[in-house]
Computed example of a mutant assay.
Amino acid sequence: MFGLGIIGLAIYVYTVYDVVSSKFGGPNDKLVWVLVVLFLPLLGTILWFLMGKKSTLGK
């Protein structure tokens, strides 16, 4: 069980890093995504990889 916690924490930290290092179109988009990921860790991570990451590709 401890190993799953470490893996989950690593994915969460990577998600925060990925959001912060991504380029966004609008000035507030990055702030909104950071807040979503910080306040809703599991849901925010899932949403980032399903929706957010695609919106930053090509920018």
Rank of each mutant, 00 (worst) to 15 (best):
K30T: 09
F24Q: 00
V20D: 01
T45G: 03
F49M: 06
P41G: 01
K53Y: 02
L57M: 13
L40V: 07
S22R: 06
I46F: 09
K30E: 05
T56Y: 02
V20E: 00
F24P: 00
F2G: 04
W48Q: 04
L4S: 11
K23D: 03
S22T: 10
T56Q: 05
Y14N: 11
G3N: 15
V20H: 02
V13M: 12
A10E: 07
V36F: 03
S22E: 01
G52R: 01
G52P: 03
L4A: 13
G58K: 07
L50E: 04
L4P: 02
N28E: 12
K59D: 00
M51I: 10
P27C: 08
S55C: 05
V16H: 09
I7S: 09
K53E: 02
V16Q: 14
I7C: 10
V13E: 06
S21Y: 05
T45I: 05
Y12S: 09
G58V: 04
G5T: 07
T15P: 07
A10S: 12
V32M: 12
V16M: 15
L35V: 14
T45H: 01
Y14H: 13
I6C: 05
S22N: 05
V20G: 01
D29F: 10
G44V: 00
G52I: 04
L38Q: 06
K54V: 04
I7F: 15
T45A: 07
L50I: 12
M1N: 12
G25M: 07
L35G: 14
L47T: 11
F2N: 09
Y12H: 15
Y17P: 02
T56C: 01
D18Y: 07
